[in-house]
Amino acid sequence: MVMMLPFVTVLLSAWFAWRGSRAGAVGWWLATLAIFVAWCFYHMTSHLDISL
């Protein structure tokens, strides 16, 4: 899992928004969301130590 990847894609999204490309910004935001979900599966599927 490349941890820096969502930061690069969200930076691209913000950059496209700043430069006036709404479609580019939304597209890169969707890519960031997809990476975020994938990373959640990688980092959040171990058991929680909350049951007695």
């Binding site: 969200v10 999204s13 913000a14």
Partner: peptide, 12 residues
């Protein structure tokens, strides 16, 4: 990353 993603919405 989630804060950054939320910021994109406000930036748009």
């Amino acid at each position: 990353a989630a804060f950054a993603m939320a910021g994109v919405g406000l930036l748009l």
